[in-house]
Design a protein around this nucleic acid. Structure first.
Lengths: 345, 345
DNA sequence: TCGCTTTAATGTAACGATACATTAATCTAT
DNA sequence: ATAGATTAATGTATCGTTACATTAAAGCGA
């Protein structure tokens, strides 16, 4: 059995609460002479006392743990860079404050509804780019502070939300491509993307930007894009530029293009999304949108911690922080003006 | 305030332990009629009862949470694929059993020594490829089941250990290169690598393999490798093949080589380590060693869960599981026979 | 020396869930 | 009909910690 506070108190010949006061720094009311305090600390060290957090949590209603919600169990595999940055940002904000981060099966339920036991988390960070409506209800019904990361704020009304400005980002892509002279642009997505709120935002931004610049902008399902590349005929390609939903998808397009001897960027411009360091390693290096994911995650986490603190001090009305992050386009080598002989065809 | 078991019991007009027995399935001793059981379940749902885990943990001495130890706070950034696969493997084993995974600042202490509060974790997974000796003492002194992942078993004596066979892996690399005709091979590492036990194992394996095959095998610090490439002279290069410590480093070498117009694999063969899907996206595609990280993490986690179960049932002596994983070499395009005009120089 | 504050502590009761022991009521066998 | 077994429950103590209330002793001015 492990050492308890009572063991330490007995060893030092003092009461339990004196030991508690000394070892936790708490107990405003309780004063202990420096002499006894020293003895208590000595005994605690000698017995290798570590507080039992279950006991403490039960009493203080504080767990010093926050839960992180992902939609699926195995999301990591699809977009390693995205989750890496997310976790790094969260940890950067959490650890200096002594908080623990938990990934729990409770927090990963298929249809977006989760149940969280009491006394496990002080708050929840909800990271679901592919947010569905039921998630929101589920999030709001938690009797815990919740902060949304990367979910369009129109959907999360009433919850603090930290998200990339996806529409603006797509506008930047289209602007760049049109500026280069492209007039037929495809946005390649996988089917499920069209059902997520982030996907909708990007599609929406893409279509709006194309419309306002008077160029042809088409949303292409992945299979059609693949087919289109396979049937590629230099002068008759339906699109001279393809934007992909993320860098990994863009990478796949690059590989395809290479296999089919389609030159990038001469024959086809390709744009990614995330501007992960992966972009520096492709051939050609990939033009992509940089989302400040780590900063977003860090600031969202800080917001959550503020909410938790506020709740403790009964400042029930903290202002609802919500922030939309502008994304930069990192222009690399995979985009260029369309070949002259096809320009304006 | 949230609903407690007492609230449910009162609402249903039964005792607290009847409610407890019905809602947790536990309490072997306590029988409840189907009629009352139904009523209890109804009331629980109606009041949205969720058990308080602090209370439960305190009583049962079970947290259903395991902690994962990393050496540094920001390790993720360096090797995203590695950590992604590790976490995926851990979660795959943990979540079906209802366990939560925790990343805690308690578990990330610079010099490898950690202290874990009681009542927070049921066990600890220690994932430190760059393991230092003090870590081991720290790991052994935890009064919790501990399983080591990715630490050489010579170092972790007495603790279950799941690790890649690094020596064998380096042997495979050297075999492959020598088979192609290379006779001057460099193994490129960053300085800190040489101090970690995994680094030592790889260096050791590399040198031993080179020696036994009677070829020149040299360990190169990163800066020297860079310098060597800068001064590259086709017929006089000190090495015709470079093995890197991981895929990302290998990627950097590829970029350098490209910038300097050194052709891979014609002028120089390059080998990575991890065989992440990154290898498929480089130009040329990267030959690399595949470590079964996810499987390793999953099996280590399963082992930890067995130890935890065993502890509960006082089967104090479970056999000490330890497994060394063989790694395959995935041969892609970045390795080939050295150019004929330099062969045998 | 008496009342008053100040200092240094201690006592007790929770927090919520569950293990173990006990009780009351019903059933079975002779 | 009654002992003994079975069923359906309830009572109570406890896990380790901390909040709140209380006490005992010392200090101090008049």
């Amino acid at each position: 059995m492990s050492t308890t506070l009572r063991d330490v108190a007995n060893a030092a010949g003092v009461s339990v609460m004196s030991a508690c006061a000394v070892l936790t720094g708490g107990g405003r009311n309780v004063k202990v002479s420096e002499e006894k305090a020293k003895l208590i600390r000595e005994k605690a060290q000698e017995l290798r006392y570590e507080p039992n957090l279950a006991g403490r949590s039960l009493r203080t209603r504080k767990t010093d743990t926050i839960g992180v919600v992902f939609q699926h169990l195995t999301t990591f595999g699809e977009e390693p860079y995205y989750y890496q940055q997310l976790l790094d940002g969260i940890m950067a904000a959490l650890f200096p404050r002594g908080y623990t981060l938990a990934l729990s099966p409770q927090l990963i339920k298929g249809e977006g509804t989760i149940q969280v036991s009491n006394g496990r988390f002080d708050g929840v960070l909800w990271c679901c780019p592919d947010l569905v409506e039921t998630s929101i209800e589920s999030a709001k019904s938690l009797r815990l502070p919740v902060v949304m990361i990367h979910a369009p704020k129109e959907v999360t009304a009433g919850l603090p939300t930290f998200a990339a400005d996806n529409e603006r980002a797509m506008e930047r892509i289209v602007n760049h491509l049109v500026g280069l002279g492209h007039e037929r642009i495809g946005f390649v997505v996988k089917p499920h993307v069209a059902r997520t709120s982030e996907g909708k935002a990007r599609i929406n931004g893409f279509l709006k930007a194309a419309e306002s610049l008077h160029v042809k902008g088409e949303v292409l399902l992945w299979e059609y894009a693949v087919e289109e590349l396979s049937n590629y005929v230099p002068d008759a390609a339906p699109h001279t530029a393809l934007a992909a939903y993320n860098d990994v998808h863009a990478g796949h397009i690059l590989s395809r293009a290479k296999d089919l001897a389609i030159r990038v960027p001469e024959d086809l411009s390709v744009v990614g999304f995330d501007s992960s360091n992966f972009c520096e390693r492709t051939q050609p290096r990939l033009t992509s949108v940089h989302q400040p994911i780590e900063r977003m995650a860090r600031e969202a986490t800080e917001c959550l911690l503020r909410l938790i603190d506020a709740g403790r001090e009964n400042l029930s009305e903290t202002r609802l922080d919500t922030k939309l992050y502008d994304c930069q386009l990192d222009i690399r080598e995979s985009t260029a003006a369309p070949s002259p002989h096809r320009r304006g065809t």
